[in-house]
């Protein structure tokens, strides 16, 4: 570690880091957990960890990869916890969409869009955790197949297979929604 790496920190820098990555981290957590509230909690944990790391003066090679890795691990921990499994098992996904983040052109459009989203989230929630993770990293985080394979310790062929199955199920979901 060089001396530059342990220079006193500016708080504004962390605010910028948070502002620049919060949406992405939250989205990744939502995709992995398929639960908005859980995702908010885990995203908070991720940034708390990032803040501690930041305050310690250490720096990752790239914050975006660091945050994604920490977020993925935090989501995996959450998924592994028996409490979460029990909680998930007793709730029925999904009922109502929260307002916001959608533009409705007409009531009919809005209803149709909601139905498609509901169906896709339902299908997505039924994918394996690994498929969701691969899909999120590949299609939302823009990781290459090679990067995902390296990160998960899988072969590239296996990653492609998981991704294909996930996409196949999701496309079936569109068919059901339309």
């Amino acid at each position: 570690m060089t001396k530059v790496d342990v220079l006193p920190l500016e708080h504004e820098d962390f605010r910028d880091l948070y502002a620049g990555h919060q949406v992405r981290v939250l989205r990744l957590c939502r995709l992995m957990l398929t639960d908005a509230d859980e995702a908010e909690e885990v995203a908070q944990e991720v940034f708390l960890k990032a803040f501690r790391f930041y305050r310690s003066g250490r720096r990752p090679d790239a914050w975006d990869k660091w945050l994604v890795t920490v977020a993925v691990n935090a989501c995996r921990d959450r998924l592994r916890s028996s409490w979460w499994k029990r909680w998930r098992g007793r709730t029925e996904p999904f009922d109502e969409f929260r307002d916001g983040e959608r533009i409705h052109h007409s009531a009919e459009d809005a209803a149709s869009q909601r139905e498609t989203q509901r169906m896709l989230w339902k299908v997505f929630g039924r994918l394996s955790a690994r498929q969701r993770e691969i899909f999120a990293l590949r299609h939302f985080e823009g990781w290459s197949t090679e990067e995902v394979a390296l990160h998960l310790g899988l072969s590239q062929g296996s990653v492609k297979q998981h991704l294909f199955r996930a996409v196949r199920e999701l496309r079936k979901g569109i068919g059901k929604a339309l």
Partner: peptide, 26 residues
Amino acid sequence: ALEADMALITQSLAAPPPARRSAPAF
């Protein structure tokens, strides 16, 4: 067709998931 489906899928999943149906039973 695949492109169109993927656009719809990613757009839909970029929105927050819908709220779960009810409070946990426990």
